[in-house]
Amino acid sequence: MENVKIEPDQIISIDRQLANSPKDHIPGWGIDADPENDPTYPMKNWNGADYERFNYQKPPQQPVRFEVFHSIERPGITRVFGTSTPPRGLSGRIRSYAYKYSEATSAHWMTLLLADRVDSVEGIISDLKSGTIPNIFKERGWTAEWKYNRAGLVDKVVTGLVVTTVLISLLSSRRK
């Protein structure tokens, strides 16, 4: 990489040189320059008084077939919504609690993060119940790790084995 410890005067000279150099080799240089584009996107636009902007043309409502949470910062659900992964189990209850708080609160977001972690444990339990043993090696992309970072993977596995062995030894010696 370029040496960054050069004298400031030299750098200023490079700066001027680069800024003023022709840009003929750069496809489309300056083609979208527009002095009128100020302020640029996104701008605050007036879009009517409250009663006017609320009465916009709304699409038909998507039928609700399961519980859909909505932010308490709006009166209800939107006209369409995703149907992926409805709330379930303990994580679902935690999420339901989180949606009692506004998006402005940590209670909302941190509770959702907690629900996510509980959900991943519930996912493993659910897999085992249905007779699926999660292939952690494959799920974590360790096939690629073996291909591109074999030494690192070996390090991780060996460290894991050592730590596990030490912990088991400590626990079994305490029992004795």
């Binding site: 909505h70 932010s71 659900i77 919504f81 995703g82 149907t83 992926s84 992964t85 998006e103």
Partner: peptide
């Protein structure tokens, strides 16, 4: 402001609806 649609994400008013972006993006696969 198509990234800020008001009728595509019930779960977060600060975020528009996005494909496959958790329920913070509206819960779409």
């Amino acid at each position: 402001l198509y990234g800020n649609c008001h009728e595509s994400n019930p779960e977060a008013t600060a975020v528009g609806g996005f494909f496959g972006y958790a329920h913070i993006g509206g819960g779409y696969d």
